[in-house]
Amino acid sequence: MSTYLIRRLSYMLLILLAASFLIFALYALTPGDFISGNIKLTPERKAELRMIYGLDQPLLDRYLTWMGNALRGDFGISLAQQKPVLTLFQDYIWNSFLLAAVSTFFTWLLAVVIGVLAAYRQYSWFDSLVMVLIFAAMSIPSFFIGLFLIKIFAVDLHWLPPGGMTTTGSNAEGWAYVLEVADHMALPAAVMTLLGLGSLTRYFRSNMIDVIKQDYIRTARAKGLPERKVLFTHALRNALLPAITLVGFELPALFGGSLIIESIFNWPGIGQLYMKSFGLRDYPLLMGFTMFIAVLTVVGTLLSDLLYRIADPRVNL
């Protein structure tokens, strides 16, 4: 186990090192930078600024400087916001995380329940209906469904706010603040859930269909266990096993924010910040963010491997 961990961790370091170089190179080779986009600057001033920011240095030198600072926990200062990149992450990531955590929770809960029931009643009218609705939900683009729901629930019915995370000018505290955020989160969380639900439900349905045919399910029935136990104790645990791989992928998704949904609902999350920074070529922030996602992806993969060991007795690391 410990040799496995040591080996895995050293692989992770190698992968991240390679990823950091790739990320740096890609952003560095993208035409244009924060300075070239500003048309108010004279060429002399631009050259001067480039020297100040170190953009005139060779690529490798710039990478080593960036990497050296990053290893010390310093990802530089956002050019557009003039704040340390990590401070900005602190400000925005938790908003994204809140939205993603709530919608991930509902996505998984609904997907498991609907998937299990649809598999149990395969080819029934319920199953067919679920499959049709899921295809519909998967096919509609998020920007359309988002705007559509805003039109209905916010503009026409005035039930929910159209965007933002709090009401403008609100000073609510305590429970009032929680309720206010929940109110604002309802629509974006619903859209995110709807978008993720389709593929996950299909995934659980097909896993469950495979598991229900197994001999040990027949054994569980022959023992005289109630169907509820057959499905949720014997079948579901086995059907959930392959989904552990997905848990690893959920980690970057939880913190990575959503570019489109956060923009539509004006949610102050990291996805929206990323979009804005991209337009401004705010490379320190962009690189820091991409590196952050890379770290989460690698950690998520390790996490899912460790989870396999806990959940499946046949897995021995």
Binding site: Q214, D215, Y216, R218, T219, A220, R221, A222, K223, G224, L225, K229, T233, H234, R237, N238, L241, A311, D312, P313, R314
Partner: peptide
Amino acid sequence: LRGHELSMIFQEPMSSLNPVLTIGRQIAEP
């Protein structure tokens, strides 16, 4: 009645037991 007054064993013992539950638990269930 199943597993109580009337029980059954099958051809493939390898696949007839749930891989993620302990033997003891599977015997204890009925």
